[in-house]
Design a protein around this nucleic acid. Structure first.
Length: 287
DNA sequence: ACATCCACCTGCTCGC
DNA sequence: TGCGAGCAGGTGGATG
């Protein structure tokens, strides 16, 4: 469940199903799950057993579970990762990547990932000033964090020489925004994805930031966007924000503001959806 | 330092 | 029915 609202939905699930519990056993399946954790599986498992999960935290699309020894279990869902709380006798299925059992019995927590772009790791190097594990220091604050500084964001985005959608997707500028919510926020702010970042006016940046916040906040309330069974919460339930999407995946359908058919363009090896009338193409755009 | 591209995967849908 | 092409909510390492 990949963008901020989906990851937040998972975080809430982890809060419910993992926090306060003591890890008793860990199994890891497949070579790619721990590829960002060089010490490997044996070290990973040994450091987790006996640890109590203190809380469930998130920055952008990254999750971590602080442990009672000061380390943190990190997770990124990639394109298709999910955490599920299930009964121990639930069949493993082909995408099971890790399993956590707890001292207080069922349910156990599973990490599944069809495409294996997600992964787990451990960080015991302490926290940054913002309170995130040091290995996430390269990730910018997301727009719901206290550490997020709108003025600093405005200055940083105008220093860039790129298109506004690229900037939104750059997790070192602002984190949590992915392809769906970038398109939705740009539509709400009436900005074309290729608008040059260094030519954005201050009110446009404010509109954009407001749109990012509003769209993602509404999606969190809806439990995220679920087009298929790949995107479910820890309890296995789908979100329903797909019904509220204005442009993403709606090529050819009328724009709810002006009736113009929504257009789709290949961009950055993916698709961008927008309203050609509400979001006019800039003369000096940057792709 | 910054901007851009591409590899990393599996599985589903579409058109021939 | 088979088969290749295209597509999918992301990221970081390599390259300019």
């Amino acid at each position: 469940m990949p963008e901020l609202p989906e990851v937040e939905t998972v975080r809430v699930g982890l809060d419910q199903y993992a926090v306060g519990r003591t890890i008793e056993a860990v199994d890891v399946f497949g070579p790619r799950t721990l590829r960002r954790y060089p010490p490997g599986e044996t070290d990973f498992v040994n450091r987790l057993i006996g640890r109590r999960v203190e809380s469930a935290r998130r920055r952008g699309k990254y999750l971590w579970l602080p442990l009672d020894d000061g380390a943190a279990l990190l997770a990124h869902l990639g394109m298709s990762g999910q955490f599920l709380a299930v009964a121990p006798d639930t069949p493993p299925g082909p995408h099971l990547r890790a399993r956590f059992r707890f001292a207080d019995g069922p349910p156990e927590l599973r990490f599944l990932d069809q495409r294996t772009f997600g992964g787990l790791s451990l960080d015991d190097t302490g926290l940054t000033d913002d309170g995130v594990p040091r290995s996430l220091a390269h990730v910018a604050p997301d727009p719901f964090e206290a550490a997020f500084d709108p003025a600093a964001f405005a200055a940083a985005i105008r220093r860039r020489r790129t298109g506004v959608k690229r900037a939104l997707l750059d997790q070192t500028l602002i984190s949590g925004v992915g392809n769906i919510y970038a398109d939705e926020a740009l539509w709400q702010a009436r900005l074309h994805y290729a608008r040059a970042t260094d030519r954005l006016r201050r009110p446009e940046i404010e509109r954009l930031l407001t749109a990012v916040r509003e769209v993602m906040a509404a999606a969190i309330v809806a439990g995220g966007t679920s087009f298929d069974a790949l995107y479910v919460g820890v309890n296995g339930e789908s979100g329903w924000f797909d019904r509220s999407l204005e442009v993403y995946g709606r090529e050819g359908e009328p724009c709810s503001r002006c009736g113009t058919p929504i257009a789709r363009r290949a961009f950055m090896n993916r698709s961008s959806y927008f309203c050609p009338t509400c979001q006019p193409r800039p003369r000096n755009g940057r792709w």
